[in-house]
Design a protein around this nucleic acid. Structure first.
Lengths: 244, 244
DNA sequence: AGACGTTTAATTGTCTGACAAATGAAAATT
DNA sequence: AATTTTCATTTGTCAGACAATTAAACGTCT
């Protein structure tokens, strides 16, 4: 764990990288305690604030956790899926909002990934996953539901579908794609008729998953993808008509 | 952008969250300059080191960039796919290494996602993507290639396959899954015969993509997934035999 | 007037030293 | 033996200072 002694700029970034590399390589195992800030400052020959800035960088990535007190310090953190979810959703959301990603591109990616899960979900779905999907489709039929609540329920439905695949790596990867789409979906106002059609497709998907019919699930997901694209195009067209 | 004035613990985390929320909500647009560290310290009523720790947290997530000098400061960073790749790969790698994810689970997720890309890749592949895939399959036939180099070429082949879908969101999502698998793949020693079979499957996949035959591409990918699992099981079985 | 070097102000990067707060362990007391 | 007190360690925060960098403002020479 060394830093470049000549380049005295971005010291905290260099130190963070050195420690991060040690963690990734396994030299620092999970729950290992790092030296105290004072000791790290001595080792790297920098001041304590510089060490602290480096540690905060690592904390922002959930690579370490810190604890105050006599036996406290910085510990290598076991990166949990739930921690990673949050980061992925933040990153994906910003990527979509900052890079002029079209709705079509984001939507295509989302449904492509989701269709990859469907066969596994059909095979392994539990009663719990099915119950969640049914509950959400039921919620989506409530009359007074706001568009935001409808979209949130939509996300919950698709999360259950993905989780039913029983593969945490897939769930993690999909979390970003599905949740990052929500702000874009919220921009669409769902008419009563469009909601009805979406709920019908959700029901068909849940039926197919329950029947363990991967082919049917895929077909209904494809139909839902196509219909979502169609709705978005209508919204975009109407907006441009208003302008013109 | 406010912080809890009562809770004077984790101030830098609170400040980082306040600024992060402002960026995500769009209140701070891309390339907007944040107030100077001294001004932020005044606004939040904390010291400059505390502000700096908060800014370093955001820098670790590529949400801001800093520049020294008279017109310098911290600027909201346009999150590029390139930056996000790195973070996703780091996170995915650590998730796999720290959470006792089996090879089977990771492999299943990877190939499920990749098969989601295949139809789009078959439809949209350019000469450039095909050339990369051909070049990598050719490289994989070199006799003196180390296992690491073979795996690196394998990653490059699959990256080209994914990029051929022409959807940057998919490429971003897949980057984590494909690259994070590399350390696990490196643990497998590829015999001459297994390499031969893998190269044959790669060639079949490239052929199918070139012919824009999505169904064939999917079938060959499925075969590759099954064969990879088979190889891994052999390695695991041999290791256990050595122990016993 | 225009081109070119110089100064200057603003800003981040780093350092030093200090104190507060939390926390577990050791010591003292009942 | 159980409980309370004290204490050492460590992180969290603060104040002030100086160095390094950078672009704009200024001055000088042609």
């Amino acid at each position: 764990m060394k830093i470049d002694p000549k380049n005295r700029a971005d010291l905290s970034a260099q130190i963070a990288k050195a420690i991060r590399d040690a963690i990734i390589s396994g030299a620092l195992p999970v729950d290992e305690r790092l030296p105290s800030e004072a000791e790290l400052a001595d080792q790297f020959e920098v001041s304590r604030p510089t060490v602290r800035e480096a540690l905060k960088r690592l904390a922002a990535q959930s690579l370490i956790r810190t604890q105050r007190g006599a036996t406290g310090g910085a510990f290598v953190n076991r990166l949990k899926f739930e921690d990673a979810y949050g980061q992925q959703i933040t990153t994906s959301t910003l990527l979509l909002s900052m890079n002029e990603i079209s709705f079509a591109t984001a939507c295509e990616a989302r449904y492509a990934l989701e269709r990859a899960c469907a066969p596994l979900s059909a095979e392994r779905r539990t009663a719990d996953h099915l119950a969640t999907m049914r509950a959400e489709t039921h919620r989506q039929q409530q009359p007074g539901l706001t568009d935001e609540a409808f979209c949130a329920s939509d996300v919950a439905f698709h999360r259950a579908l993905v989780d039913a695949a029983g593969n945490p790596v897939l769930s993690y990867q999909l979390a970003g794609a599905v949740e990052a789409m929500q702000p874009l979906m919220n921009m669409i106002t769902f008419s009563a008729r469009s909601r009805e059609k979406i709920v019908a497709l959700h029901t068909s998907i849940a039926d197919a998953i329950e029947a363990q019919d991967a082919h049917a699930a895929d077909a209904h997901l494809a139909a839902l993808a196509a219909y979502t694209q169609e709705l978005a195009q209508d919204v975009i067209a109407k907006r441009q008509a208003k302008r013109g």
